[in-house]
Nucleic acid binder design. Structure first.
Lengths: 207, 207
DNA sequence: TTTCTTTGTGAACACCTGTTGACTTTCGGC
DNA sequence: GCCGAAAGTCAACAGGTGTTCACAAAGAAA
């Protein structure tokens, strides 16, 4: 066991990050993760960990960074895609779900540590998501029925959408693999929820 | 230090539970909590812990039970209150927020451990919330505009409401004490969100 | 008062934890 | 081929972890 050291250089750093993500995906929370076991899982002596991260918390922050980058990448791609107009809602949710499944480790990390025990990670993730909501709000402001909405109301509806999708994300992550049919159910359910929300838009007046 | 043992009997058990809740409220996740420190915080030698709980996980499950009971109690009380009809939405949200602040420890535990590292707790909490959603759905079915809705659609809208309120709960818990004005902001925001959702109800047709 | 159950104690177990400092290996640039 | 930085190693530290077992106090029941 423990393949001979091969001076993987920078590779070890990313290996550590990936190993940590996998641990979280297996159920453990980041706070309860052990530096030693982590090192062992990438065939490194414990002390060598410090060659790559100043502390466990530094590792955590690096992970938050990486995961939030994945989130932003998704949003950017979504913006660049043109909108087929019909079925746009269904398509958007489906695309998002696929994205979640394709980046399972990153999303589980965000979901878990968002309410996790390490304050620094919690706050970093919250800040990232808040930013995400803001961007979504300005994006929504360009939609036909929403051009005259106040930015406050746009933030409100963006928050509503995000919390709905967030909840769905948890279901997708849990069902992924074992119960593929449940993903489809959640897809339909989420689409319905968003459709209901959008249905209210034309009748809204603030105040 | 460490006041003399006073044969507090059953009291120790509840003291352990309360100490654990306080730890979680201070930021630590349940998974990362130490049996020994917990025992120490209630002036008990570590081994005496086993007189009250078979294991740490058993403690956790007992806590889930207690916290979910608090949730059900709230719902029961809400059902028994008559509805002043006007301002019902605002009043309901306000009542809920007050309830959260009055039971801060229980709600933080549920929020944290819902996505926490201990699978057994996660699942127990999820099951409890799912039940909560079901009950809310049947309650909603008795409302004027919703009598003809399918149970599936009722569950959908109940889920939408719950995820909205859940998100708000986190804000309330975080703001509590330090930033009372932010609680009011969240109150207004949440009311708006729910108002928007309900606005869509008359225009909904399933399918 | 004696007996029995509950609750708490103390010593000891084997093991895991993060972090230190001084040492060795590896490898790219000169 | 030599040098210096980067990456990995080893031994050791002080302390924390859950759990075991036999024992002691305390209070209720008899």
């Amino acid at each position: 066991m423990a393949r001979r050291k091969a001076s993987r250089g920078e590779g070890t750093r990313t290996a550590l990050m990936e190993a940590a993500l996998k641990q979280v995906a297996r159920g453990r929370s980041f706070e309860a993760m052990s530096l030693r076991k982590l090192a062992q899982s990438v065939d490194i002596v414990p002390t060598a960990f410090y060659r790559h991260f100043e502390s466990m918390e530094a590792l955590g922050l690096a992970l938050v960074d990486e995961c939030l980058r994945t989130l932003r990448r998704m949003m950017r791609e979504a913006r660049e895609r043109e909108l087929p107009d019909s079925q746009i809602l269904r398509d958007s949710v489906e695309t998002y779900f696929r994205y979640v499944q394709a980046n399972r480790l990153h999303f589980t990390f965000i979901m878990r540590e968002r309410y996790g025990g390490v304050a620094a990670l919690r706050h970093a993730i919250r800040a990232g998501i808040a930013l995400f909501v803001s961007e979504l709000a300005t994006d929504l402001g360009r939609f036909p029925g929403l051009t005259r909405w106040t930015s406050e109301d746009l933030r409100m509806i963006a928050g509503l959408i995000v919390s709905t999708v967030t909840e769905a994300t948890e279901s997708v992550l849990e069902a992924d693999g074992h119960h593929p049919e449940q993903v489809d159910l959640e897809l339909a359910l989420t689409e319905k929820k968003l459709r209901l929300v959008l249905l209210a838009v034309p009748h809204w007046r603030s105040g």
